[in-house]
């Protein structure tokens, strides 16, 4: 495998996990994503920013093929995960979604117990060993920094948790199936400031093991949690670079205007 050689030089050049080459997406005749070239590196957090309707959420959904669920969507170009085109005919979408987990804007736990929420991904992927499931539920909840709050109430309904706890439960649920990449679509936008800071701390911990791509409307959040930032505007990827560079010396005037709050 070509990847081997890359892993050796990980010190100098980060490993590319996700990559797009001239990715285009149409909703019917609406050109929502235009010729996008993008890279995300192993164990880093990439923030996708831009005004509402700029295509950042649509772009995020390319990577676990959630756009497939919408009618009249047309996608072209290459979208690669570990150098493999995930839109290839040979790709099993359900397998792909195991590797690329997702956390949504609004916490969406299932109307099941806390335990069953986390076990769900394992069960649908054919795992029935109850010892393994119990262990995995525990470690996933620990990783999502929720274990201590729920360990005595695993049988309680997930709906009895607070919004912030529900979102961490959804993160635990995604982690249980051992993804390589974690997609987060404004994961803190429906939460209060304390829950938000919990999630942000969590993201910081999680990037040690996962590659994270996060959509956010909150500039400070992007600045705090991400290593790389991509600025989207009207379906174009205007600028992509290290978060430090984007926030301190943006090359494009649109990026600068957006970051300084002049529009968006």
């Amino acid at each position: 495998m070509k990847d081997k050689s890359k892993e050796v030089e990980v010190e100098q050049k980060p490993t590319v996990i996700i990559e797009t080459k001239t990715a285009n997406l149409f909703y019917g005749s609406f050109h929502a994503l235009k010729n996008i070239d993008f890279e995300a590196y192993q164990n880093t957090v990439t923030a996708l920013i831009g005004p509402s309707g700029c295509g950042k959420s649509t772009f995020l959904r390319l990577f676990n093929r959630m756009n497939d669920l919408i009618d009249h969507v047309n996608i072209s170009g290459k979208i690669l995960l570990n150098n493999k085109n995930i839109y290839d005919k040979s790709i099993d979408v359900d397998e792909l979604r195991k590797k690329v987990g997702m956390v949504f804007q609004k916490p969406n736990p299932f109307p099941k117990s806390i335990f069953e929420n986390v076990a769900y991904g394992l069960r649908v992927n054919g795992i029935s060993d109850s010892g393994y499931i119990e262990e995995k539920v525990k470690t996933s909840l620990q990783q999502a920094a929720l274990w201590n709050e729920v360990k005595d109430n695993l049988k309680k309904s997930a709906y009895e948790l607070s919004g912030g706890q529900q979102q961490r439960l959804c993160i635990a649920r995604a982690l249980a199936v051992e993804p390589e990449v974690l997609l987060m679509d404004e994961p803190a936008s429906a939460l209060d400031p304390i829950s938000t800071s919990h999630i942000e701390e969590l993201i910081f911990e999680l990037k040690k093991q996962y590659t994270i791509i996060i959509v956010t409307h909150n500039m400070q959040q992007a600045g705090r949690v991400s290593d790389y930032t991509s600025f989207f505007y009207m379906g174009d990827l205007i600028e992509h670079g290290s978060t430090k560079q984007i926030f301190t010396s943006p090359k494009d005037v649109k990026t600068q205007n957006y970051i300084t709050g002049r529009f968006g």
Binding site: R97, F110, Y120, V124, A174
Partner: peptide, 21 residues
């Protein structure tokens, strides 16, 4: 709620599994 369906798909569940479970 549609979000429960997408939540299930995002974990690698098939359509039938999502409906059934």
């Amino acid at each position: 709620d549609m979000s429960l369906r997408t939540g299930s798909y995002a974990l690698g569940a098939t359509k039938l599994q999502t409906i059934r479970r």
